[in-house]
Amino acid sequence: MQAIDSHTDPMVPVIAKVTRVTRDLSDVVTFEMEAEGWRGFAPGQFNMLSVFGVGEIPISISGPQSDSSKIIHTIRDVGPVSHALASLRTGAVLGLRGPYGTPWPVEAAKGRDVVVVAGGLGLAPVRPILYELMENRGDYGKVTLLYGARSPGDILFAEELRQWRSRLDMGVEVTVDRADPSWHGHVGVVTAHLRGADFDPKATTAFICGPEIMMRFTANGLVDLGVAPGDIHLSMERNMQCGIGLCGHCQLGPHFVCKDGPVFDWAVIKPLMRVKEL
């Protein structure tokens, strides 16, 4: 797979067109778009999206890998560019560069148990993994999804979570930090559900995405249960301006998060996370 390369300059985007917008939460939208020359992506990769006149930010791809006819992103309205992206309507045009970054090693997890742990908006970058697991369910061992959200109203992809929960070949636990009276699910942190999950630690590949603190605790929790650090993969977030290792902003110790990551394994990341403000 190669990045779109219609220009010799990798910093020059191509035009993409929004074909569908879905509001997931009050501050989160998922939109589909089309772009000429798009040749698909691997789960875990991201695109650089430009709103003309506003700016450009990296956004992970949240749709299925198997459908390269459309490009799907889920965006939370937190900054000027993401606000502009979240405000785009069907038919709007934007700039697209990508896909960039190292993918989740989903293929390598074939024949093994898979534990996916997501927190908050971190469900979006792991959704392509879940699609892949569902589509090729027979290739994988036991599959578990643990998802933590702030409150019942902040649960992303709630309808899909319901569908996944109803499957007999997958364990899904959703927990919230703060419940309201309507909520009948778990209350507490997502790591509390690691112990009860059904997987063989020695033959498990774990994928974690969420706030860094949550990923640290989850990775440590998995190691405590016997999962090898090299089998635990997480997606890091750093400032990215180019996405291709030229601008220098996303450095994390010796790594450029944009090109050496964003997906790293815990054996690599753990020593770096011990250093504050690296």
Binding site: G55, E56, C247, G248
Partner: peptide, 10 residues
């Protein structure tokens, strides 16, 4: 030193 920041100029 090679770092750059990408800016939008409208």
């Amino acid at each position: 030193c090679f770092c750059t920041t990408v800016e939008e100029v409208s």
